[in-house]
Simulated scan of single mutants.
Amino acid sequence: MLRLLLVDEQRMFVEALGQCLSTAPDLWVAGSADPFEQELADKIAAARPDVVTVDLVSCGTEASEVLRRLNEACPAAGIVVLASGPGRELAVEAARAGALAWVPKERGVADLVTVIRGVSRGEGWYPPELLGTVLRSLRRQDTGSGGRSGPLESLSSRERDVLAGMVEGKRSRQIAEELFVSVQTVRTHTRSILDKLDVHSQIEAVMLVRSGEGTRDQT
């Protein structure tokens, strides 16, 4: 059962969303919180969420601070941003802060449930119309900071196989089937890949490879 924490200052929206998500048999809304309340950290600790949803658009100029507080309070939880507008700059900011997914509210509950399940497995999802912007921005950030030295050198051969599948846009189950391993094994390799590459999400790992730093090591 996946434990969810809903973070949004719009109380009516939170209640409606919670009711909808509760219809999924494998999801449990363990709590909700206002992003600006002083007890946010305490509520997170009580909920022990696997996934946190948050509406950053409503946070305005405090979006970065809200993300920082969420990451500090629940570093193991995947963060899903619920967006009420395109917000390209905010999407980039969210990705830099480690948010694994960006879901426009108009996509509906069924799509959100699918993304939440994926995020709980360490997968990432950003809309195609935003993904290019996010990847280019992260690439510029990495280049500006001097990049990494041989980022793929620390990966095992099997971890490279899993990473190659991620670059091709394959889901964990498909990678597992092609490598003749379990989905849980792929998830374990994925967590190890993120740790070794010092990135927060699969999106950043894929960006690192596509930037050309990693592919040179494999040739």
Rank of each mutant, 00 (worst) to 15 (best):
R3H: 08
L155D: 04
I175W: 02
G144L: 13
E204F: 06
D8G: 05
A76R: 15
I44A: 08
D26N: 11
S156F: 06
R191K: 15
V162M: 03
S64N: 07
G150S: 10
V206Y: 01
V113L: 06
P49Q: 07
V209P: 05
R11K: 09
E213V: 07
E89M: 10
A76D: 15
A41L: 02
R96Q: 12
L82Y: 01
A99S: 05
G132T: 14
A30N: 05
V29K: 11
L131G: 01
T215N: 05
I193R: 04
L112K: 11
L21S: 10
R117K: 14
I79W: 08
R117G: 14
D8E: 10
A47Y: 09
V51H: 06
E39N: 14
Q10I: 08
P49M: 09
Q218S: 05
T188C: 03
R68K: 12
Q218C: 04
E89C: 04
G122C: 09
P49T: 08
L138W: 04
F36I: 02
V183Y: 01
A205C: 09
R107Q: 13
R3L: 01
Q38D: 06
D161I: 00
L56M: 05
V162H: 01
D217V: 00
R210A: 07
S201W: 04
R187I: 14
E177A: 14
A205E: 05
G132K: 15
T61R: 13
E168R: 15
E39L: 03
L21P: 03
A99P: 07
V109A: 12
A24R: 12
K43P: 03
L155K: 06
G147I: 06
G98Q: 12
M1I: 13
E65I: 02
T215W: 13
A94I: 03
Q10P: 03
V29E: 03
L197P: 11
S145F: 14
A176Y: 07
L197G: 06
L56C: 03
E9D: 15
N71F: 02
G87R: 15
L138M: 13
A16D: 09
V181H: 00
M166L: 15
A99K: 07
R88F: 10
Q19L: 14
G146E: 08
G31Y: 14
E15C: 04
I175K: 05
G165M: 11
R88G: 02
S201C: 07
A46F: 10
V66W: 09
A30L: 06
V206C: 08
L5I: 05
P75R: 13
V162S: 02
V52C: 12
L179G: 01
Q19P: 00
A73Q: 07
P25A: 10
Q10A: 07
L194H: 08
D42W: 02
L21G: 09
D8R: 07
V80K: 02
D26Y: 10
V54T: 04
L155T: 00
E168H: 14
S120P: 00
